[in-house]
Design a protein around this nucleic acid. Sequence first.
RNA 1: GCACCCGUAGUUCAGCUGGAUAGAACGUCGGCUUGCGGAGCCGAAGGUCGUAGGUUCAAAUCCUGCCGGGUGUACCA
Length: 549
Amino acid sequence: MTEVRSAIAALLHELYDTDIPVVLTRPDAAFGDFATNVALQLAGKLGRNPRDIAEELATRLISLDSVGAAEVAGPGFINIRLNDTALTELARSTPRAKDDSSSVVIETNNPNPFKAMHIGHALNSITADAIANLLDERYGHVFRVSYHGDVGLHVGKSMWALLRFVDGDAARLTSVPQDERNTFMSRMYAEGSRAYKEDDIAKSEIAELARKSFTRDDPLYAAVYDTIFAWSFTEIDSVMQRLGCKPVERRFLESDADLRGVKIVREHVPDIFQESDGALIFKGSDHGTFDNAFVSSNGQGLYAARDLGLMQLKSEQYHPNKSYIITAEEQRDYFKGVLAAAALCFPEQKDVTVNISTGTLKLTTGKMSSRDGDVVTIEWLFDQINEAIHARGGKATPDIAAGALRYAFLRVRVGSDIIFDINEAVSIQGNSGPYLQYAHARACSILGKATNDRGGQESTTATLEDGERKLLLKISEYSEILERATSELMPHHICTYLYELAQEFNRFYEHSRIIGDEREAIRVGLVRQYQETLAGGLRVLGIVALETM
RNA sequence: GCACCCGUAGUUCAGCUGGAUAGAACGUCGGCUUGCGGAGCCGAAGGUCGUAGGUUCAAAUCCUGCCGGGUGUACCA
């Protein structure tokens, strides 16, 4: 394919003295393997009929060894069909090598301790994990990090309710059974949250407890804090594992970033930050977003200052070529401001850090929120998925449940809203994770029965039948798809492709006998290539490629 | 108010670096058992791509207005 593309480029140079980029697309299979519209693009420039130009190019292309056919169609497209040998080679081509010296950091905006996790966290983590897998294809070192709010007002709210619960004795926390800790923590947060809103006395107590989250110098406070902190991360780790997300390299805490963030801000007053009503603010309104306070009027570092400190920490530890922060779209404008401020504070790192925002996750019943404690938990989600799988007579293993959920989130373009219809998300047939897992298991089953599997080497010389060729053509597309997904950081391209690939295989499988057929050698080779391609794509998505199910 | 994002079959989504009849899945209706996993396959119905203009040989795709929806809008995180 690269040969064909450069051959066309050479022809354009020779015949028309032009160097317009040659784009080869994958047209409808009925047209050919590849298509190009260069003739249409050239027609205007040359003042000639596009079909004439296309004819000239096509006649020259046919003489290439790898080209089986080249025809002009429609207004002036050139449809190219490779010969079977060239197609076979193309399908074996491996993705380009990565740059070992490069490194990248990706931060997933993970859940805060002291608060409940909800399915929005699952979306964020899964998206970040898949993007990290894509980055792995290109960068030598990919550092996955997370960042958690261990200090501040939300801690104060939880601590207010927790301290009332323990009533002077931190040991009372042991009365909470392990499997109820998550709901317990979210209940405590909700109670504190309500009190903060409704009760002025509680409000000032909570403010004081929030301040204490930085010092934790009171023994009872510290004991309760440490226990809940540990519970939180046990819970977070286990949920991340259940979601199929790779563990993070390092967990950053807001308390790590707070002081250095404040220092950075103070060093840049008044050139970058200005004082306003006692607070230190950044005029985001000069940078396409809103003015935001980085340090409060009582001198405390705010979220934005901490993000600045965190950027510095990440930079010192990893020296990344690129640094990605995955957040919900609600934070888009906020990050625009933080990144604009960062570009001024650290001019040498301009454009290194990028914010990628996921869309909003909405239930068909409305948006979910953790502010009032009314959350849709990940636990609930897994229950629903397991139930749906059982209802269809399947075995609900953790790998299948995770596969279903990951695929449901990843098949949509990063950044667009996800309307979360539980029945849809939980689907295990059609365009779904389990469909792909099933397709993979089926291929493995066939391969296990094959007596003639020589790793796909035998199809080099043989002529391919129509169904075989269609499957091989689809397989050959993988490296292009991976390249696109990687450069755009859009995992959904992989989903779309894998589904089409599996469908193509299932069609092939319906019509072609594999084991025991006289073409077994060729077909088993194809199944092997298909299985490897599918497994590779699933690996990028973080979905387990099951051998049996 | 201002800024940003979004509007494609009944529903959920692809397609958006402009190109050939706008593709899937779910749902609906109708088919497929001797052959390797039916969580599968085949077929049918279903679309003025929100709307009105503009640019272009060519617009779902680019530009503008309007309508509809969402998000954000400093001392929460």
